[in-house]
Amino acid sequence: MKAHLLILPALLMASPAFAADTSPAELLARYSAEAGTAADPARGRELFLANHSGGKPETPSCTTCHTDDPRAAGKARTGKAIDPLAPSANPERLTDSAKVEKWLGRNCDSVLGRACTPGEKADIVAWLSSL
């Protein structure tokens, strides 16, 4: 009951694209199942922190915008603040599968120059939710 009272105003205030339809654990399970392998948070961390060369020159790394600490706020190239990515610091994260798909689709293309595989997505989700 209490939880509902809290969630309702949050839903009303949230933008229409925000629809909490999943949880970090569910996402992790889904991506791992698609990949057919177990997720590894250490691999996710490595991918997130590394500098890549296949993507757009302006965005060599996830850290370009999210910094190397996903529990802290990041900053877009335009100067706009980005709320923390780690669910421990920002409970809205990894709870909207369409949003996660949209941003991983964009950001993997910007940084890596290609889509991330389900295994990579599982690793990233595993690392972010382990923080």
């Binding site: 757009k56 302006e58 965005t59 190239r77 949209k102 689709g105 964009r106 950001n107 293309d109 910007s110």
Partner: peptide, 12 residues
Amino acid sequence: LEDHFGENASLD
């Protein structure tokens, strides 16, 4: 939008 100022900003 796929190459929007050096970023992918594509939408469905």
